[in-house]
Amino acid sequence: MTTRSELASWSSPRTGESPPGRPAHIAVQISRLAAAIEGNPHRVEEWYRSVCIRELGGLTAQELVRQGKADLVIGFLWAVRRRERD
């Protein structure tokens, strides 16, 4: 996937934990956005797990999601779709 380079985190303000089902919803949203850019599902999966996003600190999308920073990944993908980033 060729990448070009914010929403709120899903963490609960009281407990710091994710509400049930929310991470899966975010993963689906990220997958759909990435698929709109790169139609090959295998390449989308590879990008999500393996490609370091320089503009987001050199971390992969998967690492950012695990850190509760899915909002950054989603913002990044929207910027790519709008052709604001490579």
Rank of each mutant, 00 (worst) to 15 (best):
R32H: 13
E46K: 09
E17G: 03
P23C: 06
A61T: 08
G58R: 03
S31I: 00
P23W: 03
L33G: 11
H25V: 15
V44M: 07
A35L: 15
R43W: 00
G57D: 01
S50R: 12
E17Y: 07
I53Y: 00
R22F: 12
I26Q: 13
G58T: 08
S18P: 06
R66Q: 14
V28C: 05
R54F: 00
E55H: 03
Q67R: 15
N40T: 08
Q62L: 03
V28E: 14
P41D: 01
G16P: 09
P23R: 11
I30R: 06
Q67I: 02
P41M: 01
S31N: 14
A24I: 10
K69W: 02
I30H: 08
N40Y: 02
G68Q: 09
V51M: 04
R22Q: 13
R22S: 09
S18Q: 12
P19N: 04
Q62A: 14
Q62K: 11
E45L: 05
V28M: 10
V51P: 00
G21K: 10
G16E: 07
V28F: 12
S50Y: 07
Q67E: 15
G68F: 07
S31V: 01
S31C: 06
V65A: 09
V44G: 06
A70V: 02
S31D: 11
G21S: 10
L56S: 01
E17K: 15
T60H: 06
P20Q: 09
E38L: 02
Q67A: 15
S31Q: 13
V44Q: 06
S18V: 06
A35Q: 11
I26L: 13
E38P: 02
I30Q: 03
R49C: 01
H42R: 12
N40H: 10
R49F: 05
A35D: 00
W47A: 07
H25C: 05
A61I: 04
R54N: 04
P41F: 05
L64N: 07
E55A: 15
R43D: 08
L64Y: 07
V65K: 08
R49D: 08
H25M: 13
C52A: 15
E45Q: 12
Y48F: 15
S31H: 12
C52H: 10
L56H: 07
V28K: 14
I26S: 10
V44W: 07
A36S: 15
Y48D: 00
K69M: 07
C52Q: 11
V51Q: 14
S31E: 12
V28Q: 13
S18W: 08
G21L: 06
R43G: 01
R54L: 02
G57K: 04
I37S: 11
R54A: 12
H42P: 00
L33C: 05
